[in-house]
Each structure stands twice: as structure tokens, then as C-alpha cells.
Amino acid sequence: MLTGHPPESELLTLLRVGRIQAPERLEATNILIAGGRIAALGRDLDVPTGWPVRVVEAPDLIAVPAFIDQHVHVTGGGGEGGGGSRCPEITAQEIAAMGIGTVVGVLGTDGISRSPADLLAKVRDLRAEGIAAYMYTGSYRVPPPTLTGDLQRDLAWIPEVIGLGEIAISDHRSSQPRQDELERLVSEVRVGAMLAGKRGICHFHVGDGPRGLEPLRRLLTDTEIPAEQVIPTHVNRHRALLEEAADYALTFNACVDVTAFDDADEDDLSGFGAVAWLLARGVPVERITLSSDCNGSLPEFDAQGGYLGMRVARNATLIADWQRLVHEQVLTLDQALGLISGNVARVLGLHEHKGRLAVGFDADVTLLDSALTPQQTYVTGRCVYSQDSPR
């Protein structure tokens, strides 16, 4: 599929594909990449003789914006069962093989043996391997652990930090934060993000407790914080929470993040089922995102909260649920791409350069086959995964 193996000094890449979804279908079938960005889109694009160019001939593949996963335990999650229950780190290969070009790293229950500094180091490792990686500062607990000792300084001084998360609410593993504590955290992040020129979202882990989304409802009702800054995730834990998420999204014109659980108790609570259900309840597709929670733990607890065991979440479920939404005609391909690209880029504040195939945008491109299976992944023009390459 690749024509030759050009030296590192070559500057240009020309992708010749069968179809481009930007996410809407374009007339163009060629993508010219220069300096890590999309330089041109068109048909029969050519490069002057003598210019350094790598040509990728992929007439049977579909080019789409590389996927964005906003909830990844890049350093591994878990730890609820003590020693031996920590999940492993994720690799750049595991990310890119799913067509994912951008991830946001997150700490979960364990903010003790794993720290924001560990997370930042892993994010930078992934960047060195070609993945566009970012992170949330903080973890489940309140007050959250930080890199600099201050939320606003983390946002202002650390380029990779794009928000706070995942703060746990309605969960027996959370710090049971008071309402005023949540309001103070979100306001601190908002001002810090403004100073840094970032979106500064607050990414909230929602457990299966009876309070559900009530703390976030109160936050948006009682303060001036805009809904776009507050993102609840895992809203498909159980039916009552999913119903509340639909009402929350419609009442506040807010976004909700569905998790592609690979241990969903029933199909209606899978990533596929939850997205289909929210759409049927009238939630606009633009207000829904889909993430993996991969390399986090899937713990089991008894009725008293005692630890029973765990499995490790994988990102393959994210892609399988997304494919199913298209294959079963719940969404068209261009609509479905928003769930794991354009919508996510907007939520994270990356929409001016990611989540779309357009001139001037980062050359983050995933090539899919007719079954929507990723075959190649490019991040800022660099091929970080190819199905044909030895692994």
C-alpha cells in the first residue's frame, strides 16, 4: 500500500484514497500533507518533480478525521483491590491501532501511587511516539492532586493540561465533596482556563449512587458556570442514570459522555445502546460523545462495597460500538464521526485544529476499510499505525 520507504528528510505526504469524509463526504480524493497539517484537498493532486514526497496509494480506503478518546487511563487505572490490582499502562500502538490519534489521560481512584506527574510523563512519552496526548489534572478526590499545587497554575503553565478530572460524584469511592466544594473547583478551573486560552472542562466521573447528576444540576442552576464546561461521563451505568442524562442534556443544552463499557449488563447500556437510546429521547447527536475508559479497571463490589475482583477495560469496544451505530443505520457515517471526533474536539476546545479534515487543520487522518476497520492512522502527518506493518 505504501510506495517505497522515504527518508526522514522528506517533507510531504500525499494520500490518494477512495473517499474522504471530513466528516461530510467531499468530492476530493487526495490529501496533501505538509508540516504536519493538511495543505490541500482535491482530485489528482500532484507535486512538482524533485519535491520530497511520500505517496500513499489507498484507493479502497475511506479517509476520516482520526478519532479522539477523551477518557483514557494511560498510566493504568485500578488499585481498588490493593496490591496486584493496578491496571497496566496503554501503549501508543494500542491507541493508534484503533484509529485513535488523540487521547486525554486521566487518573481515577488511585491518586496516591499514581500522580499527575506520572500522568504528565506518560502523556509526553505518547507524544514522542506520535500520539497527540493531553491530560486532566486531578483524580477522583477532592481536593484534587495537582502538578504545581494550584489548579489555575496547572492550566496556565502546563500545555498538556486541558482541564480537571475525573472528579468522582455519586460513588462510594468519591471524596463525597460538598456542593460548595464542587462549585469552587469548577470556578477555579474556569478562570485558570481563561488565563491559558483553553476550554478548561471539568470531567466528572458519575457513579451508580442515587444522587446521580443532581450535584451537576445544582451547579448549573445555582451558578453562572456555562454547561459547556461541565462534562459528566459514564452516564450509561444504569437505566435511571441514562434517563437522567437525557433530561440533563435537554434541560441545560449540555453534552454527556457515554462510555463504551465492555462489561455492560445489557445491550441497552452498551455504548451502542446508550447512544441509540439518547437519540431516541431527542438528545441531538451534537450533544453526545463516546469514550473508552480504556486501561481503567472494571471492578466488582458486593452490596456493602467490598471488592470482589476486576477486569481491565480495552478501547476495542469503543470502535465496535461506533461501527455498529453505522452498520445498523442508527447514524450516518458523517453523524457518527462526531461522537468520536468533531463533537469531542469541540468539547475539549481543540476544534480549531482537530476533529475535521480541512486545509490548515492538523493532519490527523484515519484510513478505514469498507467495514469501518482502521487500516492506517496518521497524526500530524506521521503514520503511527499501518495494518500492513509488522507489529
Rank of each mutant, 00 (worst) to 15 (best):
C202D: 00
S386L: 06
E166D: 03
A97W: 00
V258K: 06
G305F: 02
G197A: 00
F204L: 12
I340L: 13
A276S: 14
E188H: 09
A22L: 04
L219W: 03
A245E: 02
E243N: 08
S297D: 08
E8C: 09
E160I: 00
P177E: 11
R217W: 15
V189K: 05
Q375I: 10
W157D: 07
Y385N: 08
M135D: 10
V365D: 03
V186E: 06
P52Q: 05
G101R: 03
A227I: 03
V330G: 06
V359W: 05
Q229H: 07
A249Q: 08
A264K: 04
I95R: 09
H353Q: 14
H238R: 12
I90P: 01
P144D: 09
S170T: 11
L250Y: 02
R237W: 02
K122R: 13
P65A: 00
R16T: 07
L333W: 06
L182Q: 07
P159Q: 05
A249S: 14
R382E: 14
R141L: 11
R211A: 14
L164S: 11
R218S: 12
H71G: 05
I162V: 15
L126M: 07
E129F: 12
R287E: 10
P299V: 12
A117Y: 08
R153P: 00
G18Y: 12
L350R: 13
D263V: 15
C294L: 03
G130D: 03
A97H: 04
W322Y: 06
L298S: 13
P145R: 09
G355F: 08
T13V: 14
L151W: 05
D364W: 04
G212A: 03
A117L: 12
L241M: 01
T3C: 09
V53Q: 01
